[in-house]
Nucleic acid binder design. Sequence first.
DNA 1: AAATCATAGTGTTTATTTTACACTTTAATC
DNA 2: GATTAAAGTGTAAAATAAACACTATGATTT
Lengths: 232, 232
Amino acid sequence: MAKKKFTYEYERPAVTTDCVVFGLDEDDLKILLIQRDIKPYEGQWALPGGFIKMGESVDDCAKRELHEETGLNNIYLEQLYTFGSPNRDPREQVITIAYFALVNLIDHRPQAATDARNAAWFAQDELPSLAFDHKEILAKAKQRLKGKLKYEPIGFELLPKKFTLTQMQHLYEIILETKIDKRNFRKKLLKLDILIETNEVEQDVARRAAKLYKFDQKKYNKLTKQGINFEI
Amino acid sequence: MAKKKFTYEYERPAVTTDCVVFGLDEDDLKILLIQRDIKPYEGQWALPGGFIKMGESVDDCAKRELHEETGLNNIYLEQLYTFGSPNRDPREQVITIAYFALVNLIDHRPQAATDARNAAWFAQDELPSLAFDHKEILAKAKQRLKGKLKYEPIGFELLPKKFTLTQMQHLYEIILETKIDKRNFRKKLLKLDILIETNEVEQDVARRAAKLYKFDQKKYNKLTKQGINFEI
DNA sequence: AAATCATAGTGTTTATTTTACACTTTAATC
DNA sequence: GATTAAAGTGTAAAATAAACACTATGATTT
């Protein structure tokens, strides 16, 4: 073991960040996990994350760990909740600030971890058992994702740059776990006026191809300044 | 200085909790601050809070610090956000998990701090300058309070056990910073069916006395299980 | 005892939003 | 040319939200 070097007057907990990364596959909401290569929980799957370094903000720590362990960069990332039960880590007291992230799996295909750790996407119904209290963190993240999706159109983060209205609707149906009426959904979404209709259509489909739309960031920013109101 | 006793392999940030306590006065939303008696920011006003102890959960730390510094106990307390910029404390890196709390000022009159520190309630428009990044934490708390009030009837936490509908309406008006129509407000609130009408009325008012109501915790619990939907 | 004051308490109408619902169009494939 | 699969589209009914003003009550004043 490396020699211990840092001394404090009072005992201190360790601090980590962990990240729940959601990605949308064809018809499934997937979660990115890494396989632990050290104790405790060696070999088990866990949320990507790790210890904070001095001089870095908590947000930066989450970004860095996510990049180091999964190769992901520049994706939607937001603080979720801080978990601080004294026994959540068997080694010692570890406080973790959990984040949740959204990535579109079409542009960011499942990637190998850069530091040789095993990383993989798991569907909801094929989740392995998770290390630490990560199951609890995941539950909180799912709850937050559901809640957020109703009031903010964060769905764009999970879709490719250009997408069809049906893709967007599927996304809502998968996350909210409910069927949505096609006409009503389109009416509401288009009324928000934050979509740009491109003059392209889907490619390589064996049926009538759907129009592709883009997200209009500028109009969306204006809208949020006035206080958005989007309830699906 | 006391001798330093705890040694770690890697440098660790200190961890604290801070608490934004809101209380409702006659016609003002007030915030509980304590005056710092040590450096840094000695003599300045700050949110109540302090360092986490080993073996205690983050939630427990918030409760304990709140009690030690303000005498408050058993009040509505919920985690707000974790602030972790590396320079938010001039001494060294300190990560703080911020909480927000609601108390009714009628039952919990402004109290002296138990540990001799100066504690006082401040109205929004007479806030002193705050230590650390506490102004930012306060802003986040206000934003959360507004947001929450719209979807959950947390107003009860700020009112005495028995209250009039007008008091509740004033609360909404003060926090949301908007005028609300009396008839529409009452209709909506009563339709939720989480109020119990007592057969008491206000005392000592020089006009027609209003009926007093109580919050029906049981019905409310049922309601939240089904997913509440209360938008004022 | 009557008048005054201050706020409690109460319903209806209109506008807006949400929901329910089914057929035609299009383009590729067989 | 028929088939297939999903795209795309509108209307009517129901529910909800918003706007709006007077009467009731009880204490205080004259």
